[in-house]
Design a binder for these strands. Sequence first.
DNA 1: CTGAAAGCGCTTACAG
DNA 2: CTGAAAGCGCTTACAG
Lengths: 337, 337
Amino acid sequence: MKTMAVPRRLPGRASLATIAAEAGVSMSTVSRIVNGETGRASAATVERVRRAVAAVGYRPNHLGRALRRGETQVVAMLSANLDNPVMATIAASTEAALREAGYVMILCDTHDRADLQDEYLRAMRAQAVQGYVLVSSVPSRELDAFVREGTPIVFVGRPSATGAGAFVGIDNRQAGADAADYLWSRGVTEPAVVYPTQGSSATRARVAGFCERIVALGTPEPRILKAEAPGLSHLDVGYRAARDLVARAGWPRGMMCASDQIAYGVHRLAHETGARVPDDCVLVSIDGSALNAWLAPWLVSVQAPFHEFGPRIVERLLEIWAGKPPTRSILPHRLTA
Amino acid sequence: MKTMAVPRRLPGRASLATIAAEAGVSMSTVSRIVNGETGRASAATVERVRRAVAAVGYRPNHLGRALRRGETQVVAMLSANLDNPVMATIAASTEAALREAGYVMILCDTHDRADLQDEYLRAMRAQAVQGYVLVSSVPSRELDAFVREGTPIVFVGRPSATGAGAFVGIDNRQAGADAADYLWSRGVTEPAVVYPTQGSSATRARVAGFCERIVALGTPEPRILKAEAPGLSHLDVGYRAARDLVARAGWPRGMMCASDQIAYGVHRLAHETGARVPDDCVLVSIDGSALNAWLAPWLVSVQAPFHEFGPRIVERLLEIWAGKPPTRSILPHRLTA
DNA sequence: CTGAAAGCGCTTACAG
DNA sequence: CTGAAAGCGCTTACAG
């Protein structure tokens, strides 16, 4: 048996060369016409090429163009956890906005792990993606290198380690403060605050903003009940942190949960122990997923406009690509009772 | 000003040629060594190349390889609605399984629209992706063409229009029957069934399996209360269908919801009208998202093992690529009370 | 109005 | 053990 011919062409896929031969013109001409640059060719040529394209069923292969132009039209999103509806919504809105701008999105789930994030960053660089969207990124070696080299990156939700670079998110500190105001307005003067032990800077800002405001309102810091638990899943964190808190101090009159998922965890405990929300304990969280209206009517939340993140993210990318200095989009949040 | 030099190289990105020059060897040699084929080179050469790679910070660009080999290592997932936690879970598990197999996943949200699905199929072909995962696909022109041409496709959740081709999902008819058994075991002999007016074949199978079994158990078909509503969002569908049903017939003792999202919608109505679940009305649904345990403890569901979909999907793709006939993975579901 | 040619970054059969 | 050369599919400055 003879050695196989070198590279396998996808069966039935015609290239520019095929069309050129079919239409009896050069590849240059075909390329121009296929790309809509019809002004420079005679009507007869255009027609001939069109016919050949239709006859052969030609579809351009972006790989060739990408290699030549140095532009792949691909953007990578690295997200900490797709199973979290908040992240899924951000992914969906970003994907839609990218599509409108003519890009496609590769999606990677880092599970909030630095090693996986680095693996993905390397893989995406190999794919020659043109931009990166890091949703709740974690500090990592490779990320530092990317930032140092000036790679186009938009940070979402959690700012970069240095706070520099393009960013889309909400004012977490203010969101925490607004949650505090709400609990206070409901007469909860000694609230608990529930958060993950190893929280991101975003989570810490929420908690800090909350505590600051409660103190400003008149309750000394030590009387704010801190409930924390380690772990990656905020659902679990909420459940366990609340369980420990309740075991040692009983149910507080109100709790601020650093994320929706934490609130879901707290509520599960309430459900299991028969505590009523909000009658026994008022629950307020930050995120405000659209699902809450359906599944968690007992929850008051500070809503971030996740559906608007996508367009803002794409704006930031376009800015960077245009050579402008990176900017920060702080989107308005809204407490919905 | 002079015309710019032709194609922009990403700044600071070294190519194989750079390394070859740096190490004083040919590109062939560099290519082999970089790809781990070190056996054929002298130790000294390998060392020299390694040093050059490190010095220059060389990172391979897959575009070149993809063009040459005709393999991009990219798979496209077209999903009907990322905002649905079920789809998000499938996306997450598929992405993880693809990564382990050395592939990356482009994610597209079709919003259950044929025109968008076609647009994406075209865009993905342009990207020269090697395989397609269609989660809840909708019949469309381009999809027909892809199937006709033998493009590697795995259908997920909803089988293809003809039922042919690789598939990963559950036995929807049996799932419906199991839901019927559950309601019957709880003493609900005249249940309602809630579903979208324009349901997919998968949804219709669930409803059909449910009704068949109820009839087999002894309730004549006409006494099964049908509640349907048009619309794309199952949340809305559930809410409106239940509202209409309740308006004309009051709350039934139990309802089978064709999907989790429909159940969420029904529950919202129950919450608003003060009906208690399950005391007044038992709710059972098909899907069984992991979120239910946290947010919908009132819901009994037939759980599909979505976290296992990813590995099965990748298996199907590998099969197709290996030239084997496409197979169907019907994964076991389980009713969890 | 049109085409020849170079080149994007890689791989690989082949020759030595 | 190593390299020259062809080629994957495209784009584009340049020449005519």
